[in-house]
Write a protein that binds this DNA or RNA. Structure first.
Lengths: 143, 143
DNA sequence: CAGCATCCGGGGTGATACTG
DNA sequence: CAGTATCACCCCGGATGCTG
């Protein structure tokens, strides 16, 4: 598979462009989506529109603060739509924008890979490795 | 082809599995690769094996500390291979393991999306916030 | 050259309490 | 219900200096 080649080529381009951190889409993207909750939220919203409380329920270990904050970040980036119903008990529904939906594809790729190779990674992490070449590492400390 | 549906389905599965944070491949993956440098390093190594100093050069804004640390983390997870040449001036070459190469595919998808939609995101970002530091609710309706 | 140890600051993150 | 404000902690990550 020469996705590796293509990736290497892209990296070459970035270098040629002066490697501007602010201008690098990937750096920029990762700064936003690379946090602890963004992608998870995107996955949750891939199921369909959800309300704040529902999101908080399906992702138990996120605080209201981070949920709100992350959602807001996603909204700012145009990935998520925030729909406020001005009812007496406020009802806010979040959903994926077309842009957000378009992100589902690469995200699915990432998720699929993660699931498929989780065991391998865990094995490598636990001890040495499973399939790579040779690993003559001393004691690896995992923070 | 609807990646959104597939993604939503996967999320459903996680929920059914009790949503174990430690057992969730994606959570786990992101904890590792979602940091500031991992994916960038993987991109750089996609070009081919590289030495420590070369990596430090192509990614100017990474400190030796983080470079070493991130590389080690990647190595621990079995994505990167560390090859030490016991020469007098130590020469250490890093390369992608088969596992690491297999990750190039989803990563390429991510990168491609980032490049393709960077402008859109930037536009949304620019329009979203009228003024910096606004703490009040935008109370935005459908634009 | 490669990489570790240490110090140190900033920010991401959680917990709690409050608002509308 | 759907947030926001505040406090405080922890850890990421940079800078520097030392080792082999």
């Amino acid at each position: 598979m020469d996705a590796r080649i293509a990736l290497g080529l892209k990296f070459s381009e970035w270098l040629a462009m002066g490697h501007d951190p602010g201008g690098c889409p990937v750096r920029n993207l990762l700064d936003r989506l690379g946090d602890r909750w963004s992608m998870l939220l995107l996955c949750a919203l891939a199921q369909g529109p959800k309300r704040f409380s529902v999101l908080a329920r399906v992702i138990p270990d996120i605080s209201k603060r981070m949920l709100s904050q992350t959602l807001r970040s996603l909204e700012t980036d145009g990935l998520v739509l925030r729909d406020v119903q001005p009812t007496v008990p406020p009802s806010v529904t979040y959903s994926l924008t077309p842009l957000g939906e378009s992100f589902a594809s690469p995200l699915l790729g990432l998720v699929t890979w993660a699931e498929a190779n989780f065991d391998v990674v865990r094995a490598a992490r636990a001890q040495g490795r499973s399939d790579p070449g040779d690993l003559s590492q001393p004691s690896s400390q995992v923070s």
